[in-house]
Design a protein around this nucleic acid. Structure first.
Length: 511
DNA sequence: CGATCCTCCGATATCGGAGGATCGGTGCCATATT
């Protein structure tokens, strides 16, 4: 028996014993084998296809602790909860909401952990790095790895420091996983994480069971009209994606008034406890229609969402596919409808500008740093002052991050051109993503073929209900989509879940 | 870029319209305040 066969056998034993599955799903074996062989891996596979198992199983076979870098606290909580349900006790998160005493207790007991979930920001805390450098890291996992490229360059710059962090931890093997990443994002992630000759396991982004419709309207009023026309007959539960918080609230209210639907809205301006509540209600079928911004969705794995509406189009193909990909994970027929009107284009264009400081601000701030009328000594103060001057938070952080990296012997003003270049590059990438999206909206040929091309995939076999360009027989399609009774009883926990929940309660520390 | 909110003006008391300014999405952490 060679080593791969031995690894596979061990992995299968864990799969059955710990997770209760008989067989691996497509892609899992290959990823796990590469990980067990100590290779860096980049994996793109659809949500719900078992990405987590790809690092969880190696966690039982490798020496040391598996670190999982995750973008959202709620995602970490969910994963820890899921692992505890399998009986795993040596799993924790490390986050800013924890009591300092509890946090230091976790840091003291790192060695006993099999899995540790944390954010990229948490990894920059000196105490965390000090504790981590004393233990063996079996595997460095970057979950939702597209965030490295999507957020790392501006919104959450700590994503750009992960390669350094990994090096400081003795360069453990890295597994980067995501559901959606085009060629550019993949390259960017591999480069940013400094993956060496990574094994790349790339699965198709296509979702054959989702019929796609794109409708152009003359103006906002017509768009709203068509939306409500659709909602009258639409299958539920469904999600409407909007570009602003305001619209999510307005549409939720209107759909409730006009159609008597159980609606809710969800966006980043809400308290996290309310967001959690809405998310749970949606998962529990207490909400028919959820109106949200792009804040909603990561880590959501509800199998029976039948409808995804875009009331505003997203700013990249990656985002679009992620969002429509949330429909019908159970393989049954689903529907994705996008409405747009010409004036929708300004919003995403405005977002791109807002991510970076204007040339005037850039020049002025660098000059002030040279003159000593502004200082980087206190990050909060630096940020606050800029935000009071009307600079967006993201742009202010861009300034802080780049100015902080100034070599000793140079002036801040010498950073002007490098910063301009950086901004130009990033704006170009985002403008390009947006223009691909706009081309998609205007294409006269098959939508599916178009987006597959963006991912360098070929359409092998056209599904019966493909897209508006391929002329879907609508009424026939509607009959194919499973309908849910609106007054479905709450899902009751079975005894196993109840027990697990209780167990978790009592295990929680009194701090 | 454009919807929307704000301010100001006129003219006479409640409001309409012009013109300018602002806003718009994604989340971690830390720290100061309630």
């Amino acid at each position: 028996m060679n080593s791969n066969q031995r690894f596979l056998k061990q992995a299968q034993t864990i799969l059955k014993k710990q997770f209760g599955h008989e067989q691996f799903r497509p892609g899992q074996e290959e990823i796990i084998l590469n990980v067990l062989n100590g290779k860096d891996v980049f994996a793109m596979m659809p949500t719900g296809s078992g990405k987590s198992l790809c690092y969880q199983i190696p966690g039982y076979l490798l020496q040391g602790t598996v670190l999982i870098i995750s973008p959202l606290l709620s995602l970490m909580e969910d994963q820890v909860h899921a692992l505890r349900l399998t009986g795993e006790k040596n799993v924790r998160t490390l986050n800013g909401l924890m009591h300092p005493l509890e946090r230091s207790r976790v840091l003291r007991n790192l060695r006993s952990l099999r899995f540790l979930y944390l954010s990229p920001e948490m990894l920059r805390a000196p105490a965390v790095m000090k504790a981590l450098s004393k233990i063996t890291i079996a595997l460095f996992v970057v979950d939702e790895a597209h965030c490295v490229s999507q957020w790392g360059h501006d919104f959450r710059p700590d994503y750009m420091h992960l390669a350094d962090i990994r090096a400081q931890l003795g360069q453990p093997p890295c597994l980067a996983v995501t559901a959606t990443a085009d060629e550019h994002v993949r390259h960017d992630v591999v480069r940013s994480l400094n993956l060496t000759h990574p094994a790349q396991i790339i699965m198709s982004v296509d979702r054959k069971n989702i019929a796609i419709i794109v409708q152009k309207t003359a103006n906002q009023e017509e768009k709203t009209e068509r939306l409500f026309h659709l909602l009258e007959k639409a299958p539920y539960p469904g999600i409407i994606y909007c570009a602003s918080r305001d619209w999510t609230e307005r549409l939720a209210e209107q759909a409730k008034q006009k159609l008597g639907l159980r609606t809710a809205f969800y966006h980043g301006g809400m308290a996290s406890i309310d967001r959690r509540k809405i998310q749970n209600q949606f998962l529990d079928n207490q909400i028919d229609l959820l109106c949200c911004t792009n804040a909603f969705g990561m880590g959501i794995n509800k199998p029976d969402i039948r409808l995804i509406v875009h009331f505003h189009f997203p700013s990249s193909m990656n985002a679009y596919l992620q969002e429509i990909g949330r429909a019908s994970r159970d393989g049954k027929q689903g529907l994705a409808v996008l409405f747009y009107t010409k004036s929708d284009e300004q919003l995403p264009e405005g977002f791109i500008d807002g991510n970076f400081p204007s040339d005037e601000t850039l020049r002025r701030v660098l000059l002030q740093l040279d003159q000593g009328t502004r200082s980087l000594a206190d990050k909060n103060e630096f940020m606050n002052v800029l935000m009071e001057e009307g600079v967006s938070e993201t742009a202010a952080r861009f300034l802080f991050e780049h100015a902080s990296e100034k070599p000793m012997q140079q002036t801040y003003s010498s950073l002007l051109d490098p910063c301009r270049m950086r901004i130009k590059e990033r704006v170009a990438v985002q403008v390009n993503d947006l223009s691909i999206m706009k081309n998609y909206l205007e294409t006269s040929s098959c939508r599916r073929r178009f987006y597959l091309q963006v991912y360098h995939e070929k359409l092998q076999e056209k599904p019966a209900y493909c897209c508006d360009r391929c002329r879907i027989p609508l009424s026939e399609l509607m009959q194919k989509i499973p309908k849910k009774k609106r007054t479905e009883p709450l899902r009751l926990m079975d005894w196993k879940q109840k027990l697990a929940a209780l167990f978790q309660e009592s295990e929680r520390s009194p701090l």
